[in-house]
Simulated scan of single mutants.
Amino acid sequence: MSEYALNIDIVDNRFFTGEGSALFSCAEAKKARAFHRQLAGYQPTPLYELDALAHLLGVGKILLKDESQRFGLNAFKMLGGAYAIARLLCEQYQLDLSSCSFETLKKAIKQPMTFATTTDGNHGRGVAWAAQQLGQNAIVYMPYGSARERVEHIRALGAECIVTEMNYDDTVRLTMKNARAKGWIVVQDTAWDGYTQIPTWIMQGYATLADEAVEQIERAQLPAPTHVLLQCGVGAMAAGVLGYLVDYYGASQPHAILVEPDRADCLYRSGIKGEIVNVGGSMATIMAGLACGEPNPLGWPLLRNCTRQFISCCDAVAALGMRVLGNPLDPDPRVISGESGAVGLGVLAALQFHPQHERLRQRLKLTSDSVVLVLNTEGDTDIAHYRDVVWGGKYPVL
């Protein structure tokens, strides 16, 4: 096959300590999963073994957790928003979370509620879905350039959706300002001074997918992952999942690698410095779900302590991942993966076909025995763009 050198910048984490977090643990994840199990339509999303691709890429195994099949919402994000709203209502109405479903919560609500959030698409869709299930209102703000299809998905769930002229982080600030003025409840997966409880619950809710994955690995008697690639926006999902894996397997396994778009690589830059570094500007990347410039301060300490490497990569890496997953080697399953969902797998493929692939593989400690866990965090949430990439060849590698 042809060689091509896509932009993949790797930095080793000089600040690794291996110290986990009690907030993002197996015990907290199991509380969240117990709630999710009570929701109508709950079932674990598939964990696929991509053995033919693993052989081609020179690793022992590739395990892919496919979150495109989560509650019909085409992404994992509802795990966090729904769980945070449930925790909030349980506290407000003195309910037992372990015996709560949306039906019991809906009956408990005494006054109309409005949930507000900022999203690049998937998180807002999850919050709108939860509000709809509860018979409440949702107002969702989206940053400049958001895809029309993602807007319509949110509106189809009965929410008001407003696209701003700002980037993601400035839109978060606008949402908070308007919510304070109008008495809305903000359901956001990043944190700031005075706003930490709801984002903590959201991150704990994301860890349901990690609990499922580990259970699936063990039931199938598969080897434990030696590596995990986690894509990042603010780092909320990455911290929730990595916290679980560190608590379960220990900090030395798996070898955790964070992946971001090079136009919104706040965690990559933070990893270099050892403290939070923000990124501003438009952050124009096809990985809309990762176009965030300010790390979540709740997740950052864990990511700093337990990540081995940070990667900043170009959009063509995500596009490559989309095409590889959508056009599998026999007998691997076909996976429909959106731009933010495919970037971890895209990194593996791009490394294999890079002119310096042996050096890069050694850098990441990838060998023929490696078992790599990747997450497809979204499906084709923007179908037109998905086809532009997979059918039309947009963002080519050559």
Rank of each mutant, 00 (worst) to 15 (best):
A191L: 12
D189T: 12
E212H: 01
S98G: 12
K110A: 14
L360K: 13
N305C: 01
G293Y: 02
Q43I: 06
L298D: 00
I286E: 06
K273Q: 14
F15L: 02
H36M: 08
A82L: 06
E294A: 14
R70W: 01
D189M: 11
F115S: 05
V214F: 09
G135Y: 03
I162W: 06
Y249I: 03
M78V: 15
G81F: 00
L364D: 01
G145I: 03
G321K: 07
M283L: 12
E294P: 04
T119D: 01
R359V: 13
V343T: 08
D330M: 14
A210T: 04
W184G: 00
P301Y: 02
A138H: 09
H357Y: 12
Q132A: 13
D170K: 15
L157R: 08
D247I: 00
Q43G: 09
A156V: 04
T175K: 11
F16S: 07
Y386V: 03
A116R: 13
R334W: 00
L229F: 06
R334M: 12
Q43R: 14
C313H: 07
T307A: 05
T196N: 09
H385L: 12
I286V: 14
I311K: 10
D332K: 05
S337P: 01
P254W: 06
E218Q: 15
Q216E: 00
L89D: 14
G235F: 04
P225N: 04
V234N: 09
A236K: 09
T196E: 08
N278Q: 15
G243T: 03
S146Y: 07
V187H: 04
Y48K: 10
G344R: 05
L242E: 10
S101Q: 11
K106I: 07
N376Y: 02
S282Q: 14
Q221V: 07
N278A: 15
P301H: 05
G321V: 01
I154E: 00
G205Y: 08
A256I: 05
